[in-house]
Amino acid sequence: MSDTSSRLRIVWIYPDLLSTYGDRGNVLILRRRAELRGIATEIVHVHSSDAVPVEGDIYLLGGGEDRPQILAAERLRADGGLKRAAERGAAVLAICAGYQIIGESYGDDADNPLPGVGILDVRSGRGETRAVGEIVADVDPNLGVGRITGFENHQGRTAIGPNAVPLSRTVRGIGNDGQTEGAYQGQVLGTYLHGPALPRNPELADLLLRWRVGAIPPLPPSWGERLHEERLAAAL
């Protein structure tokens, strides 16, 4: 965890710009699964007028519309705090618009390329059709997560560069390109999954916790696991 705190610091980036699809649920489930294991947490809300602290442990970014996405990317690039935090080893989970803007570049509403924050080696643009609906994908076995489920609603298409790895291979849905979904690089992870992603996929939440605190004990199956299985069954 952070060198300056005995608590796990969960930093929610720009909820005033990037929280279109209930992304606060990712914050809540991450805190809950940490505290069930006796890990004290601190939630830090960083609005778009605030500086991004460098001392956080896990940074969360959500989805947003085109204009808020552009504003968020501009402010994150100018601020530099998120990039410095990633460079010092913090974990990052970015959803949909957040996923696109942490990459090297992304497209605006006219598909003009704009610079991203540059902490994930992906480049995003606009596809010819919109991807809407349930998505199911099998996560890279190296991450120990298994199959994930979510809801996608985006027109983005994302190409993964040589320094990043696809998060998963699609079973149903579009994701990046109809074959892969999301990407990760070190402890930086991006995905198009809404739902929200972590309540639907508690193992993904546990992955973020392991990245920051090391080995964690398993939890008995509860409503999170039941929701996960229910949504998988409904989608396939």
Rank of each mutant, 00 (worst) to 15 (best):
L76T: 07
A72N: 07
G22E: 14
D16G: 09
R212I: 05
V145C: 10
G150L: 06
G64Q: 10
T158I: 14
G64V: 10
G146D: 15
D121K: 09
A234S: 15
I216R: 07
E87F: 00
E42D: 13
E104H: 13
D138G: 11
G81R: 01
V117M: 09
R130D: 07
L18T: 05
G63L: 05
P218C: 02
D66H: 09
P202F: 00
S19A: 15
S168Q: 03
R7F: 04
S49Y: 13
D111T: 02
D57H: 08
N112A: 13
R31S: 12
L198C: 04
R75H: 12
P166Y: 01
L236R: 14
G56L: 07
I102P: 01
P196S: 09
L61R: 00
R130V: 11
D140L: 07
I39Q: 01
G63C: 09
I95L: 09
V117L: 15
R231M: 13
E128W: 05
I13K: 06
G64D: 06
E230C: 05
S6P: 15
E134M: 13
D206A: 14
P166A: 07
D121P: 14
L232E: 01
T191C: 08
G146N: 12
A94G: 03
A91D: 07
A97D: 04
R226Y: 00
P199I: 03
E87S: 12
A137Q: 03
R75P: 04
A205V: 02
G146W: 12
A197I: 10
L30A: 10
V52E: 01
V11K: 00
T180Q: 15
P196L: 04
T149H: 11
A137G: 05
Q187V: 10
T41A: 10
I95E: 05
G38P: 00
G80F: 08
G161T: 11
A234M: 10
I95D: 02
I39T: 04
T4C: 14
G89E: 05
A110L: 11
E104D: 13
A159R: 13
G63H: 00
R126F: 04
S168T: 04
G107L: 10
V171T: 15
G156N: 03
L18W: 01
R126W: 01
G173V: 10
T41P: 10
Y99A: 02
D177K: 08
S6K: 14
S105D: 08
R33Q: 12
D140C: 11
H194S: 01
E65R: 13
R77F: 02
V122I: 15
S124L: 02
I95Y: 01
G190E: 09
L18Q: 03
D66I: 07
E203V: 02
A131Y: 02
L227K: 13
T170P: 09
E225D: 14
H45R: 11
T129D: 11
L208A: 01
P113C: 14
G214T: 03
G133I: 07
T129Y: 13
D66W: 05
D109G: 11
Q179Y: 08
G178P: 01
G107V: 06
S6H: 10
T158G: 06
E152Y: 01
R123A: 14
L8Q: 12
L232C: 02
E35D: 13
R147Y: 13
D121C: 12
V117F: 08
A205Q: 03
